[in-house]
Design a binder for these strands. Structure first.
Length: 279
DNA sequence: AAGCGTTCCAACCGCAGTCGC
DNA sequence: TGCGACTGCGGTTGGAACGCT
């Protein structure tokens, strides 16, 4: 674990504003940055501004490139399909904007975050749905949800609470068949068959797959098996695809669209009667 | 047309993870 | 092992654009 930064200076040279320009980028700056990256490639952001002749910090250059100048960045309105996908992915991943953006071609994490904050969260609230938990707002004060709501709604940036936030954001939408009190960085072991016997095959497999991911960053943790690591991105991609394409999501999102919310969330508690078959 | 409040989004900030020395 | 540099992420902010009166 990284040493807390509070014990030393927080101002890195990159953040020092001495002599560096801030604010909106000019077309000239955009052109300089684009030309440089086209020639030299991405990366080495720290030294890039000096080499390119820009009076910007590396962070600013990276952000401008990633969110605006990259050729793959799609401009324009979010389509209904994209909106639906964002809803599904947010329900699955929480405020993991970069992960969500990674599933939506051409969209950046910043764009999706902004769209969520300005459109989708308000839309869900207007429908009586807590945009953090995707549960009905009416239940947010119930004792069973307090431990989740309190942590999820905390804006405190302390490292421990942030990890707790992340864990709850992830664990809440997805059923995990056992309590995880382990350190968050540890991988989850699926060897708890007694707790998952009631799951149907699909959900068993989904949770088994989830259990092999590091819950903190959703990268697969395969117990130091490098041969498995080489394909884990593909596995995770397939896993996400299988989840976001499931009919259970379709039916739920249809109800969300209609301003309703299902009584029961099969992903949170799949042992209830209305589990749905996967395709 | 002017003033004011609201919305939206590009950009900034601080923190955390990773890596190399 | 510890430290610093670098990078990336998510939350927040500032101000331009927009809408209403």
């Amino acid at each position: 674990m990284r040493t807390p930064t509070s014990s030393k200076t927080k101002v890195t040279p990159c953040c020092s504003k001495v002599g560096l320009k801030r604010g909106p980028w000019t077309p000239e700056e955009d052109e300089i940055l684009t030309n440089y990256i086209n020639k030299e490639g991405e990366g080495r952001w720290r030294t890039l501004p000096k080499k390119a002749g820009l009076l910007r910090c590396g962070k600013s250059c990276r952000l401008r490139w990633m969110n605006y100048l990259r050729p793959s960045v799609k401009r324009g309105h979010i389509s209904p399909d994209e909106e639906d996908l964002i809803l599904r992915l947010h329900r699955l991943l929480g405020n993991r904007w970069s992960l969500i953006a990674g599933r939506i071609p051409g969209r950046t994490d910043n764009e999706i975050k902004n769209y969520w904050n300005t459109h989708l969260s308000k839309k869900l609230i207007s429908q009586g749905i807590d945009p953090r938990t995707h549960k009905p707002l009416i239940n947010r004060n119930s004792s069973s949800d307090d431990h989740i709501t309190n942590k999820a709604s905390s804006s405190s940036p302390s490292s421990s609470s942030k990890l707790a936030n992340d864990f709850n954001t992830i664990s809440n939408p997805i059923y995990i068949p056992f309590q995880m009190e382990e350190p968050l960085r540890s991988s989850i072991n699926i060897n708890h068959p007694g707790e998952i016997t009631s799951l149907d095959d699909y959900q068993y497999q989904s949770n088994a797959m989830l259990a092999n991911y590091n819950i903190d960053d959703l990268n697969i943790v395969v117990e130091e098996d490098d041969e498995m690591n080489c394909c884990r991105d593909d596995v995770f991609s397939s896993f996400l695809n299988s989840l976001i394409n499931e009919d259970m999501f379709n039916s739920q999102n249809q109800q969300i669209t209609n301003g309703m919310f299902p009584d029961f969330d099969p992903l949170v508690n799949p042992t209830q009667d209305n589990q749905q078959e996967s395709g």
